[in-house]
Write a protein that binds this DNA or RNA. Sequence first.
DNA 1: ACCTGAACACCGTTCAAGT
DNA 2: ACCTGAACACCGTTCAAGT
Lengths: 210, 210
Amino acid sequence: MMKNSGHTRRERPYHHGDLYSSLVKAAEDLLEEKGANALSLREVCQCAGVSHAAPYRHFRDKAALMEAVAKAGFNQLGEMISEARARHPGEPEMQILDAGRAYVAWATENPERTRLMFGGMMKSDTIDEDLHQAAEAAYDEIYRIIDEGRSTGVFGGRDTDSVVLSAWSAVHGLTMLILGSGKLTPENPRDVRALADIIGDTVVSGIRSR
Amino acid sequence: MMKNSGHTRRERPYHHGDLYSSLVKAAEDLLEEKGANALSLREVCQCAGVSHAAPYRHFRDKAALMEAVAKAGFNQLGEMISEARARHPGEPEMQILDAGRAYVAWATENPERTRLMFGGMMKSDTIDEDLHQAAEAAYDEIYRIIDEGRSTGVFGGRDTDSVVLSAWSAVHGLTMLILGSGKLTPENPRDVRALADIIGDTVVSGIRSR
DNA sequence: ACCTGAACACCGTTCAAGT
DNA sequence: ACCTGAACACCGTTCAAGT
């Protein structure tokens, strides 16, 4: 298990080359493997093959590294929703159903990263602007679905923000219950999808124009 | 700021008397004050006026103390829902609306405890049976509301569990978005209640029998 | 410019010893 | 039975020094 990222000749050069990315990758892997509580920066360094002081050239502190991990997570999650939207052009109901499936699926496949992303980090006042924008971009994907559905008359509700909130809350709530409660323990992706569909049906019933 | 819990004569007796409760209380306070990440067992001990080794007579480890905090949280949350239910006998729609308000209100008043309770702790296989039952009792309060609503015909849906899941997901999702996303930042209890009512209306629309 | 190694103040946990 | 104080292995962070 020698790590040699990008280098073919020297076994371990003094200068790493792309330490920033290596640290984020190592942090992601270790986070999912051991959980947020047991994740130490020193272990991430060991995994990336550098000394425990090396990260401080690239990240202000441990929290900044975790913010980078969260940012990558929001980008991935937003991409999943975007793809679900693209799969059903002109069909907002199918878009929201499929986006819900994708949201829950990604989160259950990356539970620790999801907990990190929605665990209160975004509330801190020292929040990075990059991270904020990545989260915003994911939100916008949901907004676009609802907005199209409302403008074509298939969704109702008093205003778009309220409908987005309702849809997002339901899907996000299912997600966090799967990750956080002892009650919901789907064994495989098909179980996850079945749960997502139960919530999807209720959401669509609740926001459909009447 | 001398702590003297229960003792009037001696300033700091060798035997504390009710260290278990004092530690849970101190942990609750410090948790909400500094956040889960910055909470140290040693500081809890200092706050309770004992040495840093004293807790190990009452708790297996730090995680066990946090489980006790979570258990108390589930009991409080379940109590809130129960009271909301009792406020509107025979009116399941009002019960679920009011329970949603109470759920979101309690969580926003106790954000760190809520994150602890739903942060994945319940997933660990070494979970305490007491904690599991406290969480189950809170869940049952929601179940009772939906069950009564379905048996009197005001709620529809394929089965009670699916309807409970839909309602719980929506309210829990709003809660976690308020606690965890940068987007939702209600400034006061009235804002929180307004958000809860938006979700409540959609949920009731979604699960009402048609 | 980028990384290391020693150092510092902390942490959770253990255990012999005190009351 | 309950608590203390010293000890251990760890941790995040800093900084002079190395390449």
